[in-house]
Amino acid sequence: MDIAFLIESLAKVLIVLGFVLLGVPLIVWMERKVLGHMQDRIGPERVGPFGLLQTIADGIKLFMKEDLVPAQADKVVFILAPAITVITALVALTVIPWGDQVTILGRTVPLHIADVNVALLFVLATTSMGVYGIVLGGWASNSKYPLLGGLRSSAQMISYELAQGISLVSVVLLAGTLSLAQIARQQAHMWYVVPQFFGFLIYVISGIAETNRAPFDLPEAETELVAGFHTEYSSMKWAFYFLGEYANMMVVSGIAITVFLGGWHGPVLPSVAWFLIKLTLFLFFYIWLRATFPRLRYDQLMGFGWKVLLPASLLNLVVTAAVVAL
């Protein structure tokens, strides 16, 4: 544990943290702009050039607002819940490699915060802890709509987590490792999306359900549940849920890129640039889906998860295992 390693890790932590905190307002801006143009509107344009500072202004507004805790709420859990959402998302980001290793001052620096040999399991474990943020937020509000929203999301996330995990296992069978850095390195010549296209589809669908995004945003279906689990939340605590949701989108996209879409590999441009390009495209895909599909009904969502997605992912796993064994 030398000093250089400590400085290096600290620098990388700060870079990733800064990227998330600056990236989320940018993604929100992109979402509003893209949605606007897809719906034949222009989106935000007043604050800053192209409306770029709109989300920053919104953030400052949220920061200045009064911090409300409902009188009947469970105060400790109510405050803890949004923090859990953000922390789990940030912790999951530590193992995602965002570039090839670089040499700085004669030191080889791998561009991820930590190379855990069970990185993929680590990500699944932290995202499974993310459920708590939403469930507890719903419960601690002590009000009926948040409770229903929280219960819905816990059921949804547990169901889709299974299909998501199993679709990733198929790639692990091909790669022979759970380390994300090594999986990314192996895809120099062929991305795993080619042999595992079916697994990729399952992963993307369950990833969208996992992050509670449209068309799977049932926990916050406004027509039936007001705002779902965060109905009682306001000001910065609400902003934390927002931040957590977008950070989770980054995690799901980052895993999709690392595991299926060749990681940071790409011609001509440096590796970090390729990672960022792929990340932007994937997030654009998220927004595109939101503008395209209406929300599913809840029983359809659960039925689809258990009766279609889970058997499909198991079938994919069995076929992959058979091919690998031959």
Binding site: F122, L124, S128
Partner: peptide, 21 residues
């Protein structure tokens, strides 16, 4: 990782589910 994934992430969520309902 399995401890978190299975016990903390799945089983305890179901516990909470029952307690809340």
């Amino acid at each position: 990782a399995l401890q978190v994934l299975v016990y903390a992430g799945a089983i305890m969520v179901l516990f909470l589910f029952v307690l809340m309902l």
